[in-house]
């Protein structure tokens, strides 16, 4: 069993130590999502807190068959953040003074969530696979350039990149915002 699955299993079983481990493992990503969606740190910290509390109280609804813990937690955090934005918008409408609204971030919550999931998967790829992809993504290097830089044969670089892309894609399909498990089912209530 990989460490993330083991953590999820212990969390589901109600091991309080696993709550802290999950917080250490995923807290940064949840907070980041909150900051990106809400645009301020205090609200994002609040959402992080309520997300972990809701996740702990609703741990029985987490279904490992439908995806990983990161995707589940980010799904909860996204709903908490969106609820908060909606209630803020309601208050705004009720208020008599008309204030200039800050320019809304063009980026969709789904995109931020997907990016966090892909970043998490990238970090877990075998070292050579990860390094090859980083050079392609961040430095825009071609396969031959990556081969020259890393000293790996071109064929190996090709297969690292193809497999790495396949891994990222699989994880994105399972834990990304568009995956079925995030839009229906009992965990919707959290």
């Amino acid at each position: 069993m990989n460490p993330d699955d083991e953590l999820a299993e212990r969390f589901r079983a109600g091991d309080e130590h696993a709550l802290r481990l999950a917080y250490d493992r995923y807290g940064g990503a949840v907070l980041y999502l909150g900051v990106r969606l809400l645009g301020n740190r205090a609200d994002a910290e609040d959402v992080t807190q309520t997300t972990f509390v809701a996740a702990w109280q609703g741990r029985g609804t987490f279904d490992p068959e439908r995806g990983g813990m990161l995707g589940w937690l980010l799904g909860i955090a996204r709903r908490k953040a969106v609820d908060r934005l909606r209630s803020a918008a309601r208050e705004e409408r009720v208020a008599t003074t008309v204030r200039a609204q800050p320019v809304a971030d063009e980026e969709s919550p789904e995109r931020v969530l997907d990016r966090l999931v892909v970043a998490d998967e990238l970090a877990q790829l075998p070292a050579e696979q990860r390094r090859s992809l980083e050079l392609a993504f961040y430095d825009d290097l071609t396969h031959p350039q990556i081969a020259a830089l890393t000293g790996l044969p071109l064929g190996t670089v090709k297969s690292h990149i193809r497999r790495g892309m396949a891994n990222l894609r699989r994880r994105w399909e399972v834990d990304g915002a568009a995956s079925g498990s995030r839009s229906a089912g009992p965990s919707r209530a959290l």
Partner: peptide
């Protein structure tokens, strides 16, 4: 996925 990867 490549776009998301480049944004990570």
């Amino acid at each position: 996925v490549a776009e998301l990867g480049a944004e990570t």
